[in-house]
Amino acid sequence: MNAPPHIDPVTPASDGDLVHWLIHHTRGERFLDNIFTELCVRLQQEGIPVKRASLHMLIQHPQWIGARITWGDGMAEAELERVDHEVTERSEYIGSPVNEIREGASEVRENLERDPSLGRKHAVYDGMRAKGLTDYVAWPMYHSLGKLHVVTFATDRRGGFEAAHIGGLSRLLPVLALVSEIRVKNRLARTLLETYVGSHASELILAGATRRGSGMTVSAAIMICDLRDFTRISDNWPRDDVIDLLNDYFDAMAAPIERHGGEILKFIGDGLLAIFPLSEPSACANLLRAVSEARQAMVALNEKNSETGRAPLNYGIGVHVGDVMYGNIGSRERLDFTVIGPAVNMASRLEGLTKQLGKTVLLSRAFADFVGNDFVLERVGEYPVRGFSDPIELFAYHG
Rank of each mutant, 00 (worst) to 15 (best):
F36W: 08
T360S: 12
D115R: 13
F161D: 01
L227R: 02
A76E: 12
G132H: 09
V151M: 10
H320T: 12
T37Y: 01
G16T: 01
S170F: 03
V50E: 02
I329V: 15
M253W: 05
A252H: 11
L39Q: 03
I205Y: 01
M1K: 09
N302W: 05
H398K: 07
S214T: 12
Y196H: 11
I48S: 05
A53Q: 08
T88G: 08
S91V: 09
L246W: 09
T70F: 03
H149C: 07
T155M: 00
G269C: 09
A154L: 00
L39K: 02
L353T: 05
T191H: 04
R171K: 12
T308V: 14
D248S: 14
L172R: 01
I243Q: 01
P116V: 07
R295H: 08
H25E: 07
R211P: 02
G104V: 07
Q296M: 14
L278S: 14
I69Q: 03
G322A: 10
G104N: 07
G95E: 02
G381L: 06
L288T: 01
D241Y: 02
G213C: 09
V376D: 15
K185L: 15
D270I: 04
S292M: 13
G352M: 10
G127K: 13
V41M: 08
A221Y: 04
F388M: 15
A220F: 07
A207E: 13
G198T: 02
M75T: 01
L301W: 07
R102Q: 04
